[in-house]
Write a protein that binds this DNA or RNA. Sequence first.
DNA 1: CTTCTGACA
DNA 2: TGTCAGAA
Length: 144
Amino acid sequence: MKNANHSDQPSFSIRVVKEATGLTERRIRYYETLHLLAPRRTQGNQRLYTQADIDRLKYIKSLLDHGVSLKEVRAQLQQEDLIAHDRDFDDVERDAESYFQGKLIARKAEIHRDSLYPLINRHEIMRRLVRDHTSGHEDTKGDQ
DNA sequence: CTTCTGACA
DNA sequence: TGTCAGAA
């Protein structure tokens, strides 16, 4: 069941996500409690997933299938989110350069210093998986 | 009928 | 993680 929202992205029910990722509903919801993703909700509290959520879950499954622990998956996703956030920051910085240049640069530096680099390239397997993922591959191996 | 939360094996 | 109950 694919729903097109007014001005938003297409959204999918948990059943569609389950079928698209090969994950069980149990696991999909469990990963949400771990803050690995945060789908929007309908007024009736039903989860609404985006294609990005589906890709993210496939990525998570891929890492788990390759023996990466949930803890490492969480750390890896956190780093990637920070990098993405950092890219957004570059855009914002460009647009608001004449206004908050100083503060934005300071904030970016803070992000880098605190947690952007330490975990990157920590594990060779992670590096390989990240490369495969960013080059557009999807793993569909089944697991428990 | 589908999905949600909480709880227990 | 699987599965079940009770509610929405």
